[in-house]
Design a protein around this nucleic acid. Structure first.
Lengths: 171, 171
DNA sequence: CTTGGAATGTCAACAAGACTGACATAAATT
DNA sequence: AATTTATGTCAGTCTTGTTGACATTCCAAG
């Protein structure tokens, strides 16, 4: 904290953007605490079923991109294949994910959720969306737009590209 | 995905708040990807020094609340005291944190950063603030306000209280 | 004063989930 | 035929979370 500039600049071009270290620190803390809330509800459901967040993430993105390959999932999740493989192995063994040899390239595995997989994904997602919905409603439409803008600006370049590509897949 | 309502409602009271499942899912993904960016810079610094995120969190909040006790830190970080203790032990051993027996209640330990601790905290914080600053600048002042509103609404009740209490400590 | 309970902090052992490195297999490409 | 790519697996390590057991300190009731 407290490198320099404790006083806000005299409201320049970008309309009242006071970026004191304190403002930034509060943003950091808000992000930390909010992320806890963000994961709390799915975490409870996952714990009952002896899964973890890693399983949730896999289910989410397989649902979002049906037929995706392991390599692609790896890039999006940003973990090692060993780590992802451990998760996928259990999901396939438990009948939540279907891993089919690729048609055009038989080295690839195309991943799909089974009916049971979709059911769990829906349960997890609904819990998380319920909180997000409540937060959005409480904050209002303009706040939501700002929320999304800041989050996008906070992503790494290559990740933002992935995110925007995903946005276009649907709605 | 896709429980119900694919179509936005006809713009009711809260001014154009379209809460389709798809909108919510995008918010969820934005949160996931942005959090990665949020932690990426400090993570790199920590890795060099053989520390982890848990150390960063401890340094952050000890800096923020000098003289705080272990129990208080526990409540804020939301981990078990054993888990926190492991982290504190290494920070104290490495001379980054000073743990003094409480004056009024000698069961308590009052935690402070040493000069070295402040230096590392500053380094980590500056990396994280730099990204936050860039994101804030890119998104603009109104977006920042919305960002904070949504994050606050996403926190658990008791955590939000802690967060707001922290806000008042400074600026 | 003493004793018992509550609060606080520490140590030990374990699990999840990340990592690296080495290696195997199969399929596609050159 | 040789090389590259995609996937999966085994083994070992690290961080960070967990529980359980335990020591110390404080405070209040007897």
């Amino acid at each position: 904290m407290g490198e320099g500039g404790a006083q806000p600049p005299a409201a320049g071009g970008e309309a009242l953007l006071f970026l004191t270290d304190e403002q930034l620190r509060k943003g950091i803390e808000a992000m930390f605490f909010a992320y806890r809330g963000f994961t709390a509800d799915p975490d409870r459901i996952l714990a009952e079923k002896n899964y973890g967040r890693a399983h949730h993430r896999a289910l989410h993105f397989i649902n979002r991109m049906p037929g995706t390959t392991v390599t692609n999932l790896l890039a999006i999740l940003g973990v090692t294949k060993q780590s992802l493989n451990r998760v996928l192995r259990t999901l396939v063994a438990d009948g939540l994910v279907d891993s089919r040899v690729g048609r055009s390239d038989r080295r690839e595995r195309n991943l799909h959720l089974t009916e049971a997989g979709r059911a769990l994904e829906r349960q997890l997602s609904e819990a998380q969306r319920a909180r997000m919905r409540a937060a959005y409603r409480a904050a209002g439409a303009e706040a939501v737009a700002g929320f999304r803008q800041v989050l996008e600006a906070m992503m790494d370049e290559d990740i933002r590209r992935q995110y925007l590509a995903l946005r276009e897949t649907r709605g």
